[in-house]
């Protein structure tokens, strides 16, 4: 499995040994982020770092455990209730004139979100690379719930993240928005290179 080096800036103390040891210049960047296009995954920088700030992460993450329908339902029911409590606490905090109640409600808002996140992480949305996460994003982009939905952000996600648990067969596509024809490689999410359309806006040719 191919790995690449990433640097944790919270741990980095700028000893810069990574700069010295990397044979490919991947650590020699202006923004402190290791250049993934140059990194070959040799791990020399991670071994050299005196702060333990560099980790080797897999390029492709393993798929998440499959969930039964019963577990999915039970998780989503709880997550629904917890996020309803979160929304109520947020409203109570903003409306409360009492300082103690306002702080307690803010804590319950934050706590409920953390619990709901943990639930949905287990409810099949753990990895940004999962087909669940990408299909959900794609479905929202195809049929935005309202006009102010941040479509640009959804397009950005779909163009930057490659799915880890579904093999796209690859092939040629025609965009039904701008009529551009293009090809996508196997394993790559097809996105129109001209107008960034995706999902049902593309037809295979």
């Amino acid at each position: 499995m191919k790995r690449i080096a990433v640097r944790n800036l919270r741990l980095c103390t700028k000893d810069c040994l990574c700069l010295y040891v990397c044979p490919y210049g991947a650590t020699d960047t202006e923004d402190s982020i290791i250049d993934a296009s140059k990194c070959t995954g040799c791990g020399i920088c991670a071994d050299a770092c005196p702060s333990g700030a560099i980790s080797m992460v897999p390029e492709d993450y393993p798929p998440q455990q499959v969930k039964t329908d019963e577990v999915k339902n039970a998780i989503e029911k709880l997550a629904y209730s917890r996020t309803l409590a979160e929304a109520k606490a947020r409203r109570a905090a903003s409306e409360s004139g009492k300082d103690g109640l306002r702080r307690l409600m803010k804590a319950i808002e934050g706590s409920s979100r953390l619990v709901a996140e943990d639930l949905m992480r287990e409810g099949r949305y753990m990895l940004p690379q999962s087909s669940n996460a990408l299909d959900l994003t794609s479905a929202l982009l195809d049929d935005p719930p309202s006009k102010d939905f941040p479509e640009e952000s959804a397009r950005e996600i779909l163009s930057r993240i490659r799915c880890n648990d579904r093999k796209e067969s690859g092939g040629s596509y025609r965009c039904s928005v701008c009529f551009t024809e293009f090809t996508a490689d196997e394993g790559e999410t097809p996105i129109c290179p001209m107008c960034h359309a995706s999902g049902k806006d593309l037809e295979t040719i």
Partner: peptide
């Protein structure tokens, strides 16, 4: 509300993988 939790969690996931742009979008 549940969708908000799913996407804020995916933002954390992207951040853990040092994908700042993706985290911002999520």
């Amino acid at each position: 509300g549940v969708l908000a939790a799913i996407f804020s969690n995916l933002a954390r996931g992207a951040e853990k993988q040092y994908r700042a742009k993706e985290a911002e979008a999520f």
